[in-house]
Structures are given as structure tokens and as C-alpha cells.
């Protein structure tokens, strides 16, 4: 009988999810120790979304998201050391300490940020898709946004242009039920984000974002649609964030039971682990090997983020404009 994923690929995806979880837990610790400051939004609970989508992409595809971006960067293959060192504001970080948690980029991995303004990444992702089409590189842009972001007007301006020009973009709405302290019932008229492209004939579907295989399957359909020149596609991922909105949010707007229920019954990592063992016959030992490897990688990233020096003061005035322009 053919399974949708091989044991090798499954272990790989599991490792990626486990890496995000572990990385974020350590980031929370570093925040508590005062090594990370400002806003820091953890991805814990949503791991299957980005890992599932990323696992079916091609190297030329691009990815863009908002400020809850650590998971996206790790899934895109960015170096955990560079990500963690950016969180601590050190010269070894992806933005050499100048961006912080919300603003990181990797041209090499086609990760285009890391954006602090809710919704602003959506037209930008649409523009990346415009460039894919223009350059005929057969790339697709994955544009992630939250359920809160999905109410910004520029999202609908983007839908229109993407449909009009058949741009290769997949809009991934990571619906974790809340925008800060506001539940979707209090922010969105009509709960179906996947259906909001209807006016432009943009296909959309709702996906269980806590199940890696479901995410992969839907992402394949969506990306194929976009890659084949048929235009945009909307995936609404039903998911959940375990932690507060950012480190300063006590999350009083939801009950402990609600959170516990998701953790107990829908956890993406536990769920996939069980699937690997019972269906794919992967052994506990194999899983442990992966987990140990990930733990070592994260420990190394933490160490690096503490020892990498602060940026040199001269960095204050670098990177404002590119050299080589025609001014003066």
C-alpha cells in the first residue's frame, strides 16, 4: 500500500517541525533572560502549516510572511544560528542585528521577510509573483498572512490584481483564531476566509492546518494551480497558537481549557509522530535520533546568539542606500 509520504521524508518533515518548536521554546527562554527584547511572536502550535507548504516547494519559489516569522525562516532552510542571533540583536544575525525578530530576510533562500505592518506583506508577495511571471522562472510565491491581516483592504486589492493578471501566488491564511486579543467572530464578518476570493473566481479551500499531510496535499494542489498559469489560490489553514500574541500578552481573552484542548487533541507534532509510528512503522529510536540532532542544532544556535558580538557602532550608518547610484 502506498502512503502519501515515505518514512525518510516523514522524518525530515518531523525534524523540521520539531526544530521550530524547540527553537521557539529556547527563544522564549532567552526573552525571559533579557537577551531578546521588543516584540517576539512565537510560532508554537502552527508548525505543520509552514513545514507542510514548504516541503512541496521548488528552489525557485519564494516565501513572504508577517512578523510571526521564525518558523518560516527555519522551514525555508535558513540557518538557526543566524535567526537566533538576529533575535538577540547581534552582528551574526541575518540582518546583522539591525532588523530583530520581525524583520529578517534571505535572498539565498528566497525568503522575503519578516514584515511588521499587518497586511503589508500581501501586495508585496503579489509583486513577487508578478516578478516570477515576468521573469518566466516558473516560481510561485507563497504569501502568508494571519486571520487578522486578512481584513486589510490591500489584501483585496491584491486578490484583484493577482486574478486579473493570473499571477502565480498562493495566499496562505494562517487562521489561528485570534488577532491579538480579538477572536475572528469579533473581527471578521463571515468566517470563511477561503471563500473571500470568490468575486474574482480565485479558488480557495479550508485545510486542517494541524495535520502535516493535509497541508501538503492542499499545498500541492494550490501550487500546481498557480504554477500552471491559472492564477492565484487561497488556502485557509485552520490552526492555533499556543502562546500569547507576543511575549507581553497574558492571553486572558481565551480559556486555559481551550488551549489545553488543542494541545491534547490536535498538536501537529504529536499527531504526526503517532502517525509515523503506527502507520509508517518508524521506530522510536529513529525519532529520538532526529530529536537529539535538532536539540544540538538549537543549542548551538543559542550559544552563537549569546557569543556573537553586538554590531559595530559604525553599522548605524550602513545599508541606508545602495552604493553605485547616480546621485552626485
Amino acid at each position: 500500500m502506498a502512503y502519501p509520504i515515505s518514512p525518510e521524508k516523514a522524518l525530515e518533515a518531523y525534524g523540521d517541525m520539531f526544530l521550530i518548536r524547540r527553537f521557539e521554546e529556547r527563544a522564549a527562554q532567552l526573552y525571559g533572560m533579557g537577551l531578546i527584547a521588543g516584540f517576539c511572536h512565537l510560532y508554537i502550535g502552527q508548525e505543520a502549516v509552514v513545514v507542510g507548504v514548504q516541503s512541496i516547494l521548488k528552489p525557485q519559489d519564494s516565501l513572504i510572511t508577517a512578523y510571526r516569522d521564525h518558523g518560516h525562516m527555519l522551514a525555508a532552510g535558513m540557518d538557526p544560528k543566524g535567526v537566533m542571533a538576529e533575535l538577540t540583536g547581534r552582528s551574526g544575525g541575518y540582518s546583522r542585528g539591525k532588523g530583530g525578530s520581525m524583520h529578517m530576510f534571505s535572498r539565498e533562500k528566497n525568503f522575503f521577510g519578516g514584515h511588521g505592518i499587518v497586511g503589508a506583506q500581501v501586495p508585496i508577495g503579489t509583486g513577487l509573483a508578478f516578478a516570477h511571471k515576468y521573469n518566466e522562472d516558473e516560481g510561485v510565491c507563497i504569501t502568508s498572512m494571519g486571520d487578522g491581516a486578512a481584513n486589510q483592504g490591500q489584501v483585496y486589492e491584491s486578490y484583484n490584481m493577482a486574478a486579473l493578471w493570473k499571477l502565480p501566488v498562493v495566499y496562505v491564511i494562517e487562521n489561528n483564531g485570534y488577532s491579538m486579543g480579538t477572536s475572528i467572530a469579533r473581527s471578521a464578518a463571515g468566517p470563511n476566509f477561503f471563500g473571500r476570493g470568490q468575486g474574482w473566481d480565485i479558488p480557495g479551500e479550508k485545510v486542517d492546518g494541524m495535520q502535516l499531510l493535509k497541508v501538503q496535499e492542499a499545498a500541492k494542489r494550490a501550487v500546481e494551480h498557480a504554477r500552471s498559469g491559472k492564477g492565484p489560490y487561497i488556502l485557509e489553514m485552520d490552526t492555533y497558537r499556543y502562546r500569547g500574541h507576543s511575549m507581553s500578552d497574558p492571553a486572558k481573552y481565551r480559556s486555559k481549557e481551550e488551549v489545553e484542548d488543542v494541545k491534547q487533541n490536535r498538536d501537529p507534532i504529536d499527531h504526526f509522530r503517532a502517525y509515523m509510528i503506527t502507520t509508517l512503522k518508524v521506530s522510536e529510536a529513529q525519532i529520538k535520533t532526529i530529536e537529539d540532532k535538532v536539540k544540538a542544532v538549537v543549542a548551538e544556535a543559542v550559544e552563537f546568539s549569546k557569543t556573537s558580538p553586538e554590531p559595530d557602532p559604525s553599522e548605524l550608518y550602513t545599508d541606508i542606500l545602495k552604493e553605485g547610484s547616480a546621485t552626485l
Binding site: 516584540f39 520581525m102 524583520h103
Partner: peptide
Amino acid sequence: ASRVGAQH
């Protein structure tokens, strides 16, 4: 504010 980067 404090340590929230350029966009904030």
C-alpha cells in the same frame, strides 16, 4: 518605544 525595530 524600545527594541521594536524600524517599522515600529
